[in-house]
Simulated assay, not measured.
Amino acid sequence: MSVIAAALLVPGVAACNSESTDSPSAGSSSREVPKDPKEALVASTKGLADGNYTFTIASESFNGSGGVHKPSNSAQMAMKMGDESFTMDFELIQIESDTWVKVDLGDLFAGIPGMEGMKDKYQHLDAAKAGGARSLDMLKEGTDPADAAAMFQGLSEVQETGPGTYSGKVDITAAKDSVAADEDVLKALGDQAKAVPFTAKLDSEGRLTELVISVPAAGEAKAQEIKVSYADYGAATAAQKPPADQVVEASAQTYEMFK
């Protein structure tokens, strides 16, 4: 997937225990897990819709962590990504209508006027100016990094492989906001994108705790596994504003980057 797209789609601070035997988190209520494997996976995303959880994401080319806390209308994420030719560190904090981003493009900053001095600063974005940047809104519906609720509408060959563990294939074209659904990769995959192998784990409450998507090689992109883990259902913490002395107003280049 494209590096910028990865950063924009993924909400940072989390430590996840993704074993299928997880005990219920604070604020959870007992839910009966459907016996049908497809129905169980579809139902497993209801906890994400509540908007109070943390997550981590890992792949060969990017890693990150984050959290969504709708009780305070706040969210945050941190990402590191790149390869031998490109690196990027990205942080985002959203509280109500205020958004701050910190971006470090490594050596690429040297070629962008005014950006070198920004890499250690949180840039505050004006909501009116950034109105078209839907990907910066982490509180919108379907925000989780895998966009699991949408993705699980395209399940096939699903089977329960053990207590709380599942495998099958998924149509990643159904999840436009997923970290696995980069536009260029989808185009290169063609029909393969409609049947991508996955494994999943649910906790004892039937909530999704781990999703591993095995994206095949396509075009110039190598095959890779993308692992998203979810935890702290009902017990995430509110995001905090960055220190005032580390905040500047976003540059024109930053607004352009997130269009």
Rank of each mutant, 00 (worst) to 15 (best):
A5Q: 07
S214P: 04
G142T: 11
H69W: 10
A133Q: 08
S72L: 00
L108Q: 12
Y122P: 07
A150H: 00
Q192R: 04
E96A: 10
A78R: 06
S65A: 10
Q94A: 13
A110L: 15
T254A: 13
S97K: 11
E205I: 10
G142D: 12
L105V: 15
A181W: 04
M1Y: 04
K119E: 08
F62R: 01
L189H: 04
A43G: 01
K121G: 13
D171E: 09
S28P: 09
D137R: 03
A217C: 07
T143L: 04
V215T: 08
V212L: 00
G111I: 12
S229Q: 15
I213V: 07
K70N: 13
G154A: 07
T199Y: 09
L92A: 02
A218F: 03
L9N: 02
S44P: 13
S229K: 08
T199W: 05
V13C: 09
L136M: 05
G131L: 10
T143I: 07
L202C: 09
Y233R: 05
L186F: 04
G82C: 09
E19K: 05
M118F: 09
T173K: 00
K121H: 05
G66S: 06
L211R: 05
Y122Q: 08
L8P: 06
M115R: 10
L208Y: 01
I93T: 14
S28L: 11
E91N: 10
G131M: 07
I172Y: 06
G106R: 01
G67T: 10
G106V: 08
R134Y: 08
L202W: 06
T143M: 13
L139V: 15
Y166G: 01
S23P: 11
R207P: 11
Q159S: 08
Q224F: 01
L202Y: 05
E210F: 00
L139H: 07
L41K: 00
G132Q: 05
K46G: 06
Q240V: 11
G234V: 13
G117D: 15
K70A: 15
G106M: 09
K140Y: 12
K140M: 14
Y230C: 05
V13F: 02
G190W: 07
V13S: 10
A14Q: 04
D184Q: 12
